[in-house]
Write a protein that binds this DNA or RNA. Structure first.
Length: 577
DNA sequence: GCCGTTTTCGGCCCGACTGTTTTCAGTCG
């Protein structure tokens, strides 16, 4: 059972107990534990064996025992018990906007409603309005909620959400009176997927801005429009909401809307410790006097903290680090110097070596590795050793054409075969400047097999880098069942660098594993895996993952100066002699 | 259920909104 599954069990336990009317503090303790477990980047099994479960924040004796039980038996007694007491269908009721634990319990107790379809039937029959605390309004909202649920699109990949948000924000910024317009929520924190687009604007005249927003060409429906907030549906069913705050309160507003919820809870506790109350409108002294913050930096300053980058705001230790003066100096897009994984028309790319090299140079990159597919990947027109040698000549030709402005490397994205052997013999690998090992097939092998296969590839002395290690595709393909902790340890041991594939459909490694990799001493490389020049722009999503993983320039090979990258290539190679 | 250089017991974040109410409960973010 992996971390994700354990987290889901605790979330379920929390939901069920909430329906039972259990103390919200206890319920929250389970939810917090679930959230922390999701962000660990290290297998709970490992942590259990090391006897370190209770070192996880929010995990005490009781939760530690439940985790151990889950890992050992696949079940948790406490959960099994409440599952018997609460009809399982009640959990899906919680998905309906307007139905929380209290109402779910009421619906069950009074009307024996135990699943969504029964709820819908009862609502249509007008039976909900007679319940205590409910009325025709709630009934109508619940029906609307059920319909919204039915046409709900899943989470939106950041690669879709970010450009849409930028387009909306750009138009807002051009409106007179709009002093600032920024993304907020998980979008600003650069999560790999977002639920909706949270946008924030500063203006002394909110209603005018909101009216403009609801008229945007991207908007298909206006779901709600008040004095400070509007909620709309965009093409493709994506939801967006805009809050407009007065400029002098924009700092607290942006801080609040950026979240995460967990980070904000910690921040408000911090405020209370300092005799202040923090809300989206202001910091308030006990006397009732407000302290207004126009910028986020002022909010953090008033709380006697350095400004914390949005990507870190997940309550994964950033507050403690800030207090200790140990926040990392996060990697920035402008620091990127290299891309070590791109394709050309030699395999399945859409542009020539020259076109890719010029595009990279124009973006200011100093090193570019041409890494077309290896021979066994027939569908992608993989290169035989003979074609590989021809390609080398062309790369050299382009290098002469472009001169010193950018260093071109000949690499290859070499298939790791089902048994862990690489797709070229050693003498061919030895001719390459850069060898990337990558798994594209047999991704559903059992854990032991695919882990062993990956470890064998990492131990190959010619391998510099492992591409998109988990093989996942968002949202279509789950990651391979890898023992990632073993993979990261071996990579650290063998001095093999791990990729953060910047394509928003991959973002692989993910943030949690990238952070763990760095903790273990691995180096990382942010590559675009570009198949055409415009895809170099995807770098920023890889940088987002790296920042969420607390990475600094030092840990990211593709942010190093050219000389240092060359040294890195040789250092690995010297091990192979 | 967790947590503690104020505490091993008694706390545990904030406000808007909605619909139901005559002062508040529930939900949401």
């Amino acid at each position: 059972m992996d971390n994700q599954e354990v987290a889901e069990k605790f979330d379920e336990l929390a939901d069920l107990l909430a329906i039972q009317g259990e103390s919200s503090f206890r319920v929250n303790a389970y939810r917090r534990a679930a959230e922390t477990i999701r962000g660990l980047g290290r297998d709970l099994g490992e942590i259990t064996q090391a006897g370190e479960l209770q070192k996880i924040p929010g995990v005490g004796q009781a939760i530690a025992e439940k985790i151990e039980q889950l890992l050992a038996t696949g079940k948790m007694q406490a959960l099994e018990r409440v599952r018997k007491e609460v009809p399982p269908g009640l959990l899906e009721l919680l998905q309906v906007p307007g139905v929380g634990p209290k109402r779910a319990a009421l619906l069950w107790k009074e009307l024996r409603i135990s699943n969504l379809s029964k709820l819908e039937k009862a609502a249509r029959a007008g039976k909900l309005r007679d319940l205590r605390g409910l009325g025709p309004g709630v009934e109508k909202n619940i029906l609307a909620g059920i319909e919204a649920l039915a046409r709900r699109t899943g989470r939106i990949p950041i690669g879709t959400a970010w450009p849409l948000a930028q387009e909306l924000l750009e138009r807002l910024r051009q409106q007179p009176g709009v002093r600032a317009a920024e993304p907020a929520g998980s979008l600003r924190r650069r999560k790999e997927t977002v639920g909706d687009l949270d946008l924030l604007a500063a203006s002394p005249d909110p209603e005018k801005v909101l009216a403009f927003f609801t008229q945007d060409p991207l908007v298909t429906h206006v779901l709600a429009q008040g004095q400070t907030k509007a909620s709309v549906e965009l093409k493709g069913g994506i939801r967006a909401q805009l809050w407009v705050h007065p400029p002098e309160r924009f700092g607290t507003a942006l801080q609040y809307a950026t979240g995460s919820k967990e980070h904000n809870v910690r921040l408000r506790e911090r405020a209370l410790d300092l005799g202040l109350s923090l809300s989206e409108h202001a910091l308030t002294r006990k006397s009732g006097k407000e302290i207004l913050c126009a910028t986020e930096a002022e909010v953090y300053e008033r709380l006697k903290l350095p400004w914390i980058a949005p990507e870190l705001r997940e309550d994964r230790g950033e507050i403690e680090a800030a207090l200790a003066g140990k926040l990392p100096s996060l990697l920035e897009l402008s620091q990127m110097t290299a891309d070590l994984h791109v394709h050309t028309t030699w395999s399945d790319g859409h542009a020539s070596i020259l076109e890719m090299a010029e595009a990279a140079r124009d973006l200011g990159l100093k090193v570019l590795a041409i890494t077309d597919h290896s021979q066994s990947l027939g569908v992608a027109n993989g290169l035989t050793p003979a074609r590989l040698r021809e390609q080398r000549k062309e790369i050299q030709k382009v290098q002469r054409q472009l001169g010193d402005s950018i260093l071109l490397l000949q690499g290859s994205e070499v298939e790791v075969r089902a048994d862990g052997a690489l797709d070229y013999p050693d003498e061919v690998l030895a001719e390459l400047d850069l060898v990337i090992a990558a798994v594209h097939s047999s991704l559903r092998q059992p854990r032991e097999q695919i882990t062993g296969r990956m470890l064998r590839a990492i131990r190959n002395p010619y391998v510099h880098l492992v591409a998109h290690p988990s093989g996942r595709l968002i949202p279509d393909r789950e990651p391979a069942d890898l023992d990632m902790e073993a993979v990261l340890h071996e990579a650290a041991e063998q001095n093999v660098t791990l990729e953060i594939d910047a394509n928003p459909a991959r973002l692989d490694l993910d943030d949690a594993h990238a952070r763990r990799a760095a903790e273990l001493g691995c180096l990382l490389a942010i590559n675009t895996d570009a198949h055409s020049p415009p895809e170099f722009a995807l770098r920023e999503y890889g940088v987002g993952v790296a920042r969420r993983a607390w990475l600094t320039r030092q840990e990211v090979v593709t942010a190093w100066p050219r000389r240092k990258v060359e040294g890195w290539l040789k250092r690995r190679r010297s091990r192979s002699r």
